[in-house]
Design a protein around this nucleic acid. Structure first.
Lengths: 153, 153
DNA sequence: ACAGATATAGAATAATATTCTAAATTTACA
DNA sequence: TGTAAATTTAGAATATTATTCTATATCTGT
């Protein structure tokens, strides 16, 4: 089924940059009719190339531009321990991403807060309240050089 | 200027989950008129609470669901070295995120590839071809537990 | 080269975004 | 606390876009 041609790839690139392009605008860029663009996008959605459309909010404007990365080691690596940890972590809204990773540490999480002082509170009151955690190591973002949502095709 | 009320926050939450909600749908959810919703969204855009709207593409479907995190140490930390490194890194499309961080390592980058074998190629042919790098440490994503674009208000 | 399937263009329609106006609500401050 | 100005809202009117439909063109596999 369905291998993407250059037009599809171009479309995905454009929609990843700006999901508000109209079919008319896209039609102009890709030298096709709005209908052709429309049908292609619908197909990309049906086939799950496009998962969803979202608004990106400015973290600075809502006082969530202090970013920390925390590497986490679990005490044990049983199925139960992993499942418990992952479901607890999902309940903490400050944690915006969580990856189970290879290496010395088991998890890498990304945390968005307003400032450093909140990080202390986050660690003491939330993260380390989770059982299963053995130890952690944190790194703070000094500067976000870039952080794309788009995957170039 | 402009402090967000509960309606604004609710709106931002909804649009971060699904940017395709129509003003009519949002009006129903928030018990307002479509015009009121429309004006509020336009204001949030004008005031840069909303940066942009994007389509999220399924990494698995486009063979970019192998994820690695690489911590990078620079040889020197001069302004010139930092600037050079950051501009070089920005040219490598596999690197989807780059943060200047505190700690032993200077940078944390996220890389999206198709599979492990490509990672070797990425390291040998691309990343370590960049001068200024002293050493690196990599961790591979075993599982993406979650990775939100939304910041809860 | 041909039949079936798929993609496209253009017209028609439906739905939504956008603008406009007046009323309601909130805000600032006398 | 009262009042004028500013902001927000609702509803109607309009403009734009999404969506459907039909016929034609293009592509695919044999």
């Amino acid at each position: 089924m369905a291998t993407l041609d250059q037009t599809d790839k171009h479309l995905l690139n454009l929609l990843q940059e700006n999901a508000r392009f109209t079919t008319k605008q896209l039609a102009l860029k890709l030298s096709l009719s709005p209908t052709a663009i429309y049908e292609r996008i619908k197909k990309l959605e049906r086939q799950n190339y496009i998962n969803r459309y979202v608004a990106l909010v400015n973290p600075r404007k809502i006082q969530k531009d202090f970013v920390a990365f925390v590497m986490i080691q679990l005490k044990e690596h049983t199925q139960a321990s992993i499942a418990a940890f992952e479901s607890e972590i999902a309940l903490i809204p400050e944690i915006v991403a969580c990856f189970h990773v290879s290496g010395t540490y088991d998890y890498l999480i990304k945390v968005n807060l307003d400032e450093m002082s909140s990080f202390r509170n986050f660690m003491v009151e939330k993260l380390t309240k989770i059982p299963h955690i053995s130890n952690t190591q944190s790194a703070f973002s000094i500067k976000e050089v870039f952080n794309h949502t788009a995957l170039k095709l």
